[in-house]
Amino acid sequence: MSLRSILIATAIAAAAACSPAAPPASAQASGPDSGRREVAVFAGGCFWSVEANFERIPGVVSAVSGFAGGRVTNPTYDQVVRGGTGHLEAVQVTFDPARISYRQLVDRFWRTIDPTDPDGQFCDQGATYATAVFATPAQKPAALASRQAAVAVIGARRFVTPVRDTARFWPAEAYHQDFARLNPVRYGGYTRFCGRAARLRQVWGA
């Protein structure tokens, strides 16, 4: 059993006992809230990590772990990891466009993933852990421009993460939500095992 599978089993057992936690740092960020909301969807490997990264960004209102890009309606985690649904682990990010732009979110996303890996991310390998930016028609020009800027750093031959057309997003089960924030010790062990930070330094520099 993988470390992530062990953590999932532990999280399921503990989910009912979890008390309400403080809102993520992004919800407490300084600066006025305009009340406007837009949504973006990113697939960056393990959705625990993608969610945790976005929740730290001022201007992000919420980040929800789930699935996108597949063929099955309302898939479960077990269905997705078994394969055959076509879904990627993804995160739906709700943000205030007056505080952070969609382009800025995409720019930050690249620096949290290894866009040179076509088979997954870090210790999580397989089709469900592939990376992508899911963009609406209105978002696509900004997403492609951001990708082009990132490709200039990495190199076109190495950069494999695509910008894909928008796809229906399905939230994952409750025990996956806010996993890093609610389970800091277990999540810390997972990230150290995966070597995420070291690999990101190799790809993007310090």
Score class of each variant (00 low, 15 high):
1 M>I: 13
3 L>E: 09
3 L>G: 01
3 L>S: 07
4 R>D: 14
5 S>F: 10
6 I>V: 08
9 A>F: 01
10 T>K: 01
15 A>W: 15
19 S>P: 11
25 A>G: 08
25 A>W: 04
26 S>Y: 00
26 S>C: 02
27 A>G: 00
29 A>W: 08
29 A>Q: 02
29 A>L: 03
29 A>Y: 03
31 G>R: 06
33 D>R: 15
35 G>N: 12
39 V>E: 10
39 V>S: 11
39 V>N: 06
40 A>D: 04
40 A>T: 03
43 A>N: 05
45 G>D: 02
45 G>N: 00
46 C>F: 00
47 F>K: 08
47 F>I: 07
48 W>R: 09
48 W>F: 12
51 E>Y: 09
51 E>G: 11
51 E>M: 09
53 N>S: 13
55 E>H: 14
55 E>Y: 01
57 I>E: 03
57 I>S: 04
57 I>Q: 07
61 V>F: 00
62 S>R: 09
64 V>T: 15
65 S>E: 13
68 A>F: 03
69 G>I: 04
69 G>N: 08
71 R>P: 01
71 R>S: 11
73 T>Y: 12
74 N>F: 07
76 T>D: 10
76 T>W: 11
77 Y>S: 03
80 V>L: 06
81 V>A: 02
81 V>M: 12
82 R>E: 14
83 G>F: 08
87 H>G: 06
90 A>W: 11
91 V>S: 10
92 Q>T: 04
92 Q>C: 10
96 D>Y: 01
97 P>E: 05
98 A>Y: 05
107 D>R: 02
108 R>K: 14
110 W>A: 00
111 R>A: 05
113 I>Y: 02
114 D>Q: 04
115 P>G: 01
115 P>F: 04
117 D>K: 08
119 D>T: 10
121 Q>F: 11
121 Q>E: 10
122 F>Y: 10
122 F>K: 02
122 F>G: 00
127 A>T: 12
128 T>L: 05
130 A>I: 14
131 T>Q: 13
132 A>E: 01
134 F>E: 01
135 A>D: 01
139 Q>G: 05
140 K>H: 11
143 A>M: 11
144 L>F: 00
145 A>L: 13
147 R>W: 04
147 R>E: 07
148 Q>L: 08
150 A>E: 14
152 A>H: 10
154 I>G: 07
155 G>R: 07
158 R>A: 13
161 T>H: 06
162 P>N: 07
162 P>K: 09
162 P>A: 11
164 R>L: 14
165 D>R: 03
166 T>N: 06
166 T>F: 06
167 A>S: 13
168 R>I: 12
169 F>R: 05
169 F>D: 02
171 P>A: 13
174 A>T: 14
174 A>Q: 15
176 H>G: 08
177 Q>I: 12
177 Q>R: 13
182 L>A: 05
182 L>P: 02
183 N>M: 15
183 N>H: 15
183 N>R: 15
184 P>V: 06
184 P>I: 03
185 V>K: 12
186 R>L: 14
191 T>N: 03
192 R>N: 07
192 R>A: 14
195 G>Y: 12
196 R>M: 05
198 A>T: 12
199 R>H: 05
200 L>T: 07
200 L>H: 10
200 L>E: 07
202 Q>C: 04
203 V>E: 12
204 W>D: 07
206 A>D: 15
206 A>M: 10
